[in-house]
């Protein structure tokens, strides 16, 4: 069993490059992302990790690839974009999911068409197919990480893919449907999508309320501020969502040459009340 060691960037990179101790490699990949070690050596080591064939989980997946993909998203280096696009074809669902999330973070438009391609088989005649809605036999997940893909396409401003995304609004898995609402709001600015997520804040399941909160925060839906502040969930999460709104509003204020607009102050007053 590998102990969690006290690492430095140099040791973490060495640990990741060596091939004897799989536990050390797995931990090092996570550590480099967590501490944002954004050096060329770290990137090369993580790119090696993204191609790893040794570390195989009981479910047949690739734990080191998953961690490497996640870390590469946090490091913000464009060199990782093409390898992560390749990782979208990996047979491990969780590697594909991590790659989609990291491509969202890297914000590179080259990811739009490969991400969209993963959605195509889920749609026929503007309706979701069984492939789009069924879970994989004996697995707890769908065929593709749709939530992550939809969110990435929204963030990457994939404006030409609106029609491809729309059928997912009605996806039977709520989080996927939320992801579609979030993305379509980001792509169209239509409040109808934001209001659906505000409604979801009233849902019965805590996990889903949390998910809707995070989506509203990520898309900076300022009109939902009061609903977020009074949602039935932990203040910690509400504060994170509100910070998303605040950042969005500050950006808007800067573009319109205002400082401390009415909405900005309203958001901060709500945040103060959640401390």
């Amino acid at each position: 069993m590998t102990e969690a060691p006290n690492l430095t960037p140099e040791i973490a990179i060495q640990n990741l490059i060596q091939t004897e101790d799989l536990g050390l490699r797995y931990y090092a990949a996570w550590w480099l992302g967590k501490f944002r070690v954004n050096t060329p050596e770290a990137i090369s080591a993580l790119l090696l990790g993204l191609d790893d064939n040794r570390d195989i989980a009981p479910d047949g997946g690739y734990p080191l690839r998953r961690n490497s993909a996640k870390a590469l998203g946090k490091l913000g280096n464009a060199e990782a974009v093409l390898p992560l696009i390749n990782a979208l074809d990996c047979e491990d669902y969780y590697v594909r999911e991590s790659a989609a999330q990291s491509l969202e973070m890297l914000g590179d438009k080259r990811a739009i068409s490969p991400l969209s391609a993963l959605l195509q088989p889920a749609i026929q005649d503007d309706q979701l197919t069984a492939y789009g809605t069924d879970t994989v036999a004996d697995k707890p997940h769908l065929y593709q990480p749709y939530e992550a893909i939809l969110e990435a396409l929204g963030t990457l401003q994939a404006k030409n893919e609106v029609n491809l995304l729309k059928p997912f609004l009605k996806h039977p898995v709520p989080k996927v449907s939320y992801g579609a609402h979030r993305a379509l709001y980001q792509l169209t600015g239509d409040n109808i999508y934001g209001e659906k997520l505000v409604e979801a804040l009233q849902g019965k399941e805590l996990q889903l309320r949390r998910s809707a909160l995070m989506d509203l925060g990520a898309m900076g839906y300022v009109k939902g501020a009061t609903a977020i502040a009074s949602a039935y969930a932990e203040n910690s999460l509400k504060l994170i969502a509100m910070k998303g709104l605040l950042e969005h509003q500050i950006n808007f204020d800067q573009q319109t040459n205002q400082s401390l607009s009415h909405d900005t102050i309203m958001i901060m007053d709500l945040m103060d009340s959640l401390l």
Binding site: K243, L246, E247, I250, S259, L260, T264, I265, M268, M271
Partner: peptide, 14 residues
């Protein structure tokens, strides 16, 4: 490092 905190501090100063 967080713009949100810069903004909250500006509001306090105001």
């Amino acid at each position: 490092q967080e713009i949100a905190l810069q903004c909250r501090a500006s509001k306090a100063l105001e």
